[in-house]
């Protein structure tokens, strides 16, 4: 394995001072790093808190482009090896802040990116939110969510079951990262996805050297029929 530590980015839409969402993602991140370390793979994690970016995110939704701070955050996310995405549940759904952030991402930013989906809520009634709302969202982004999602209520912090779910999800993420399958999918199948020239994705085409000139449309651009 490479000696550069794997880079995990935690996207957290928790906003309160003692955010239980952040508490949950800290646990998941630590467990994932532990699982990787046990396998001899160094990893680091950093947190992308959406709260401080809330105004930038709202502006980007309206203007159609991210400001400098938000753009830096998006670039950081696009460069991550693995992602832990977590949102509080508000009014029976994911937080609007989280969804708005997802709305301003390039469609190809997270292609084949291994992701743990997590949410926190006030009661067990909303336990399906990660699977019913986050999973379709990340499917649209062509990301690769691990099989186990994590949902936590206040009561769960007294339950060993939460620790087991965290461990399971972390193990799944660690195995996906160790296999390198996400990176390999993105490397080999990249041309098959829809892209935006000069977008934010790590592999985005940025110059003539990156562009495929053999497509039907490129041939048409160079005067030829299809």
């Amino acid at each position: 394995m490479s000696t550069t530590p794997l880079d995990l980015v935690v996207v957290s839409a928790g906003v309160s001072e003692q955010s239980s969402t952040r508490l949950l993602t800290d646990r998941i991140a630590q467990k994932t790093i532990d699982a990787l370390r046990d396998a001899g793979v160094p990893a680091t994690a950093s947190v992308l808190d959406l709260g401080p970016l809330a105004v930038d995110i709202a502006r980007a939704v309206v203007s159609g482009f991210p400001g400098e701070d938000l753009k830096r955050a998006i670039t950081r996310l696009g460069a991550a090896d693995g992602v832990i995405a977590a949102t509080p549940v508000y009014k029976a759904g994911i937080s609007g802040l989280f969804k708005s952030f997802a709305d301003v991402l390039d469609n190809d930013l997270l292609v084949a990116k291994p992701v743990i989906l997590a949410a926190t809520g006030g009661s067990a009634r909303h336990a399906m939110v990660p699977d019913e709302q986050l999973r379709p969202l990340f499917a649209f982004l062509r990301a690769m969510p691990v099989p186990t999602s994590v949902y936590a209520t206040p009561e769960d912090w007294g339950s060993p079951d939460l620790g087991k779910r965290i461990a399971r999800a972390s193990t799944e993420l660690a195995l996906l990262l160790r296999s390198g399958v996400g990176r390999e999918i993105a490397d080999t199948a990249w041309d098959g996805y829809q892209h935006q020239f000069s977008g934010n994705a790590t592999r985005a085409e940025r110059s003539a050297a990156d562009v495929d000139f053999t497509t039907d449309l490129m041939r048409l651009a160079a005067g030829g029929g299809r």
């Binding site: 159609g64 482009f65 020239f197 085409e205 490129m218 160079a222």
Partner: peptide, 25 residues
């Protein structure tokens, strides 16, 4: 403002290329 195919066509014919340079960073 976003389509390399259009820029390619401009280049192929030796025509001009115009970017509106508004509503974006």
């Amino acid at each position: 403002i976003r389509t390399p195919e259009i820029a390619e066509q401009a280049a192929y014919y030796g025509n001009g290329y115009f970017a509106n340079n508004v509503l974006a960073p």
